[in-house]
């Protein structure tokens, strides 16, 4: 059994007027100790998927329409407030994209970590433990840093604090939502290395949300690709990156320039990503797909396993070249 199982999850946004579907039958499964990457362009629903896993979507704005989210066998949407507090913290830790907005600007960083410990690991809520976590995420002189406020730290340092904050409760699943997007490449490499070594050391599972296929190849075991509110492909990372089966994944990989690339021009996906509420009927990708048939405009493709561990939402997957 997987640590996290998301089954046929559909979510509506009910902000004003008619509800708008933002997630549509999302499938996700993460085993304990595994690094799972969730890739997609902006608006594909990857952050919303992650937020709904920790049940962080506000009830006033969104409504789960169908489907289940199970963490360690327990239905996340059936938990009482005490169960939810247990889930968020010891179950799921969360690292957000923008550390400068996710940290409390008027609280010393040591106090923020200590508060986390008091809530989730009360026996460990001491200065020494706070300092140890800061040290573990690579912050020098933690006793001095612990007394500083977020604005006194650089972006890379703030992201390390976010990481220390999430890890101090020792979660079984760390959700990292674009943890390095706001950082420069050399700092990104530092943070990525850190997540990877702590993941191995603590044996936790990681759900890494990114739009950068490069990161996926570096640290993930498995990858799910999202498009327009659906997961369109899932598989082992080497299979998906080297032999993508869904036409969208294949086109997306072809449109990214790589170092040492000798191609004259890049593969172009015509058109733009449709926004929620404007999703086309049938297969969501058919207006931009080079392999689309008339049937693609009317029939919803089924989510099916086409090879062991490899799932795809397309009736005409790309053939594997041998």
């Amino acid at each position: 059994m997987s640590l996290l199982e998301v089954d046929q999850l559909s979510v509506d946004l009910v902000a004003q007027g008619a509800p708008v579907r933002v997630l549509d039958r999302v499938e996700l499964a993460i085993d304990a100790g595994q690094v799972h990457a969730l890739v997609g362009e902006s608006g594909s629903g990857k952050s919303l998927t992650a937020l709904s896993v920790a049940r962080l979507l506000p009830d006033t704005l969104t409504r789960r329409v169908a489907g289940t989210v199970r963490f360690d066998g327990e239905d996340v949407y059936g938990l009482d407030p005490a169960g939810l507090r247990r889930l968020r913290g010891r179950g799921v830790g969360y690292v957000f994209q923008e550390p400068s907005t996710a940290l409390n600007p008027v609280m010393r960083i040591g106090t923020q970590i200590r508060e986390m410990l008091q809530l989730h690991r009360p026996k460990e809520a001491t200065d020494a433990v706070v300092w140890r976590w800061l040290e573990r995420v690579g912050i020098p002189s933690p006793d001095i840093r612990a007394r500083q406020y977020p604005h006194e730290l650089s972006g890379g340092m703030q992201q390390r604090v976010m990481l220390a904050l999430a890890l101090s409760a020792q979660p079984r699943l760390l959700i990292a939502d674009e943890p390095t997007t706001a950082l420069d490449v050399t700092i990104q490499a530092q943070v990525l290395d850190l997540i990877q070594s702590l993941q191995r050391e603590l044996g936790m599972a990681v759900l890494l949300i990114t739009h950068n296929f490069g990161l996926v190849g570096e640290i993930a075991d498995r990858v799910s690709v999202m498009y327009a509110g659906q997961v369109v492909e899932r598989g082992p990372v080497s299979a998906v990156l080297n032999a993508p089966r869904h036409p969208y994944t294949a086109a997306l990989l072809g449109s990214v320039p790589r170092l040492g690339d000798v191609r004259e021009s890049l593969v172009v996906i015509p058109g733009t990503v449709p926004s929620p509420g404007h999703w086309p009927g049938g297969c969501r990708f058919h207006p931009r797909c080079s392999r689309a048939t008339p049937g693609c405009a009317t029939d919803q493709p089924a989510w099916r396993e086409i090879a062991p561990e490899s799932w795809v939402r397309c009736p005409y997957p790309v053939e594997v070249q041998s």
Binding site: A189, Q190, F213, G214, E218, S238, L241, L253
Partner: peptide
């Protein structure tokens, strides 16, 4: 430091 798809655990110069 530039991560690349398909390349895994390369030797990296971490600044």
């Amino acid at each position: 430091a530039v991560p690349e798809p398909g390349v895994r655990r390369r030797e990296r110069v971490i600044l």
